[in-house]
């Protein structure tokens, strides 16, 4: 599904504070499985996720998505691929304050130009699936942490992506909520989604839901 070949990523390239966050990553990620990136803070997990999720381009190396080389694509097309293929769940949920849960859920679909009626119906179905129907009209800042995360999950699913990318999804959740999150993750995986997440939370990486754990350190993959 996703292939990385000698991928490197530098920040502030050519300047005195140049920093190589990734130092040559070779990796294959299979479709339909749950893969977790694990490693200490600063090891480059988030950076790797942004490259895979088409949020950024590698400084060198190749990224292939379903066989197609996407590492040299302009942002315009990366965005298109990202919108169709990836759904994101962020550590801080990153919902837009002042908008209702439902409005937040349909945000990623607005640039597609699908009719609003269709979008609302789909968002309502997703919220129902996540037991959030009763909160659909509530502003997101009035929701609890767990509810906010479920809104974020619904938002990640609105464009029906094949891959779900979650960066430290349980960092802001307590044990009970983390457990609930893992249940949702399992159902997503069961529905055929490819899941890719980063975490240093043992509850996540040691969970039976996760098929494969990849360890990272200093911008490289390390053997466990």
């Amino acid at each position: 599904m996703i292939e990385l070949l000698a991928v490197k990523k530098a920040f502030n390239q050519g300047r005195s504070n140049e920093y190589w966050a990734l130092n040559g990553i070779d990796l294959r990620i299979e479709a339909g499985r749950v893969t977790a990136l694990r490693g200490p803070s600063g090891s480059g997990k988030t950076t790797l996720l942004t490259l895979i999720g088409c949020l950024a381009r590698p400084t060198s190396g190749r990224v292939r998505l379903k066989g197609e080389d996407i590492s040299g694509l302009p942002e315009r097309f990366l965005t298109e691929i990202r919108r169709q293929t990836f759904g994101f769940i962020f550590q801080q949920f990153n919902l837009i304050k002042g908008l209702s849960a439902l409005e937040n859920v349909i945000l990623p679909a607005l640039p597609t130009g699908r009719p609003r009626r269709e979008l609302v119906a789909r968002a309502e179905a997703l919220l129902a699936q996540l037991q959030l129907s009763h909160r659909a009209a509530a502003r997101v800042e009035w929701l609890s942490g767990g509810e906010q995360q479920r809104v974020a999950i619904a938002r990640a699913l609105i464009n029906d992506p094949e891959v779900i990318v979650a960066d430290e999804p349980t960092a802001n959740l307590d044990t009970v909520l983390s457990g609930e999150f893992m249940v949702i993750l399992e159902s997503l995986s069961a529905a055929g989604k490819t899941v890719l997440l980063s975490s240093h939370d043992p509850l996540v990486v040691e969970s039976p839901v996760v098929h494969r754990v990849i360890a990272m350190r200093d911008g490289r993959l390390v053997d466990l």
Binding site: N12, Q13, R57, T59, S71, E75
Partner: peptide
């Protein structure tokens, strides 16, 4: 240079 992933190229694109 469309093939380049450098920040300079990204700035040009933007």
């Amino acid at each position: 240079d469309i093939r380049s992933g450098s920040e300079a190229q990204l700035a040009l694109e933007r």
